[in-house]
Amino acid sequence: MSQEKFWILFSKKLAGEAGAEELNELEALILQHPEWQYAIQNIEELWKNHPHTDSIHAEDAYLLHLHRMEDLNIPFGQFPTLSIETKRPVRKMKWYWAAAILLLVAGSWWGIRKMTASKTEAPIARAVNEITTRPGSKSKVELPDGTMVWLNAGSKLTYDKNYGLELREVTLTGEGYFDVVKNKNKPFIIHTSSINIKVLGTVFNVKAYPQDKHTETSLIRGSIEVTIKNRPNDKIILSPSEKLVVENDEIIEKDKQAAHHEGAAQPTDLSALVSVNKLKYISADSVVAETAWINNRLIFRDEAFSDLALRMERWYDVQMEIGDPALQNKRVTGIFRERPLNRRWKP
């Protein structure tokens, strides 16, 4: 019976189980029975519906699962239970430290407010707007189109008076967390020393300190397109929860080489320069390590101590000297909440 055959073939097609021959056979059957069309169309649409899944429920279940693992004494790595913070004698911290932090934070916020306020009030359209943060301080900026930028310590963001006319172009040195207002007609472009990032509307973090070995771009949601300076044809599209790491040294070296060869074609492998990784989610509260700094947390996981030292220098505006060279490459993991450096950390 053609009916029986039809349902077998049709369900195989929906489930992605049908071969080319079977699909042809099904096609022929359908042509003979135009009256089936209505049911076929609707079943195809119905097939595409997915069950509503409740990700919040799964998040809760995951937390319970982690607790259960703990109860069952199953070792689940060191993170997040081990953090340097818990090892410090937190309770002994004097109350005046707390007061000092409050003053500091309040003071810097007030300062920033005043700074940005006076800027927007200035009637003369300045050719270039520049927002800088000193080491040890952070800042939050609202751009003319409502895009929010959090600037980490020791960073600089500039944009000129053409911002928002056709494009929304900014230049970044250092680290910024961007929440870009959607506008399909005016792409938002970030220039750093090694890469350009083009976006339409999305949330992401860019870390482009000139002293660092890498430039990192972490995408939280939406999608962005990254091009590497001097390689405009290689476009890298990032998906949410992906991090693009570009080797800065390599690029600088390539520049030098290119200069030597007078722009001779350099068929270098793109994968040698860049890598795409997953973002580091911290299991307990699904905070992304890369963007924890905007919540005043410094999270580092399995990083070389020398890299951490560099981050702490910016974070606290201090100079760190590592006496023991063996310590340089030691891997460390932990979380800091923002607070002044304990004496023991000072040289």
Binding site: Q3, E4, W7, I8, S11, K12, A15, Y38, I43, L46
Partner: peptide, 17 residues
């Protein structure tokens, strides 16, 4: 499995016809 799937879809299809 093939036969069971065909049965399920035929019954759904019948609703619309």
């Amino acid at each position: 499995v093939e036969a069971q799937m065909a049965i399920a879809l035929r019954r759904i299809g019948k609703c619309m016809q």
